[in-house]
Amino acid sequence: MLEGITNTVAQHIHTYREVPGGLLPLLHAIQDSVGYIPAEVIPDIARALQLSRAEVHGVVSFYHDFRSQPAGSHVLQICRAEACQALGSRALEAHAKSSLGIGYGETTADGAVTLEPVYCLGNCACSPSVRIDDEIHARVDAARLDQLLAQLGIGAVK
């Protein structure tokens, strides 16, 4: 498993090592194909880009997007920003947490879904908004969220 990852990462490193400022595109590429940035690959990245391991780790940990652990099969992001707050996103957050039985940054025990906060999806005229993987959904209340999750085969924990 890890060997497969190392090969994939090696290919991405090859693509981006000469690109000016290529570390972010490289990390995105790794996360897109592997699902997260395994700690094991940080030394390889550092060596190829002539950075210290601490620098690479510093970049990975600075950005909310980069994960050091695999996420669930689906990632649910709930917008926490003001426009969505104005239409009830606080209640939606509470509903999501209690029905999935997890908090932000956590994954359900069956590995189905990871819950994350997001600060604005640019869909502020039709709040509240959520993002599930690469799809954005508008005007999402608790019932609609349950419906969207049910379509992915995800039910409430209770």
Partner: peptide, 20 residues
């Protein structure tokens, strides 16, 4: 593509991010 940091909208932070 950015990586989910609001501060990267500030222009000098954005430049640091673009530099990797």
């Amino acid at each position: 593509i950015g990586a989910g940091a609001y501060i990267c909208g500030e222009e000098t932070s954005l430049l640091n991010s673009l530099e990797g």
